[in-house]
Amino acid sequence: MAVVHIRLGFRPDYADCLSVAARIAGLNAAIVGEFGTEFHPAVAPLVGEMIVTKQCVNPFFNTRHMTWLMRNGIKRLYLGGVATHLVVESTARFGDDAGLAPVVIENICAAPNPALHDHFITMIAPAVGTVSNTAEFVASVSEA
């Protein structure tokens, strides 16, 4: 199974940050190579797994992610991450629009507010894909 790791990361001068949203104002983090842009050892990429560094919420915008998926014949996305209501939602919506089949693995997603997480999982994710959990994911992979 192909695994892609996606992280947020900017140049030190933030010249590659296009967003003008309020959440970006005063941003003093996510500089590539500094604390907060590396993966936790428990989920660190293995040799050969692709890493995409993005500068916005949508991991398909201005990255090689979609090209890589298409070139490799990927038709289903299994999603987990932070923040459920921004990044996971954006990825699921765009993936659905692109003809991919997003599967949101609910218990490996998180948001700063549980209500934001729950709203996406219960109200939006079922409209753009499927909601699953790690036990169901592991069982489905074992059967394949």
Rank of each mutant, 00 (worst) to 15 (best):
H5G: 01
A139W: 11
F60G: 00
V47S: 11
I74R: 02
R7F: 01
G9R: 03
I108L: 07
A92N: 03
G33W: 02
F137H: 01
T63D: 01
L116H: 07
I24G: 06
Y78I: 06
K54G: 03
S19L: 08
G33F: 03
G9F: 02
G26T: 07
M123W: 10
R7T: 07
H40P: 01
I124L: 13
P59E: 00
I31W: 02
V88R: 04
S140L: 13
N107C: 08
G48I: 06
L18Q: 15
E136P: 02
V57E: 01
F39H: 04
A144W: 12
L46F: 09
C56K: 15
Q55E: 12
Q55C: 14
N133W: 05
V52Y: 00
V20M: 14
L27T: 07
G36C: 08
G80I: 00
I105M: 01
G33P: 05
G33M: 02
L8W: 02
N58K: 02
A98W: 08
F61R: 11
M66T: 08
M70D: 13
F61S: 11
I105D: 05
F137L: 11
S19G: 09
A115E: 02
N107Y: 08
F35N: 15
M50E: 14
I51D: 09
T122H: 13
A135Y: 13
P114Y: 10
V104C: 00
M66A: 15
M1I: 12
D96E: 13
